[in-house]
């Protein structure tokens, strides 16, 4: 029985994995990819709710999330490239200039 709870549980676990990845990993690109994993988990939850309520709103929101993900990547990748050109490193622990 592939029910709502199972799909929701999978979505929650994927979201938690993405959050742990953002907190734990050092590489800026890997952190970006973990953010993508969190967005994917949200999409899975939206599709599940859309199926359960038999409405189209969830699926429409999924498309808006696609747009947000594309825009996020289009902005984040140039920032990461600039950071790596300045410090010649992708290690986020090296970027402590804002630390008080």
């Amino acid at each position: 029985m592939a029910d709502t709870q199972l799909l929701l549980g999978l979505s929650f676990v994927l979201f938690a994995l993405g959050l742990v990845g953002v907190m734990v990993r050092r590489n800026a690109l890997v952190m970006l990819m973990c953010m993508e994993l969190m967005l994917n988990a949200v999409i899975l939850a939206l599709v599940t709710f859309s199926l359960e309520t038999a409405t189209l709103s969830g699926a429409v929101l999924v498309f808006l999330i696609f747009v947000v993900a594309a825009a996020e990547i289009a902005i984040a990748i140039p920032i990461v490239l600039l950071l790596s050109r300045q410090r010649s490193s992708l290690d986020v622990e090296g970027y402590d200039r804002l630390q008080g």
Partner: peptide
């Protein structure tokens, strides 16, 4: 050859895993 490609985890490893769990 970036050093962050070799060392995977930052100092937040333990709190991150606990918070995620």
């Amino acid at each position: 050859r970036d050093p962050s490609f070799v060392r995977r985890y930052s100092r937040m490893l333990l709190p991150g895993v606990v918070l995620g769990a």
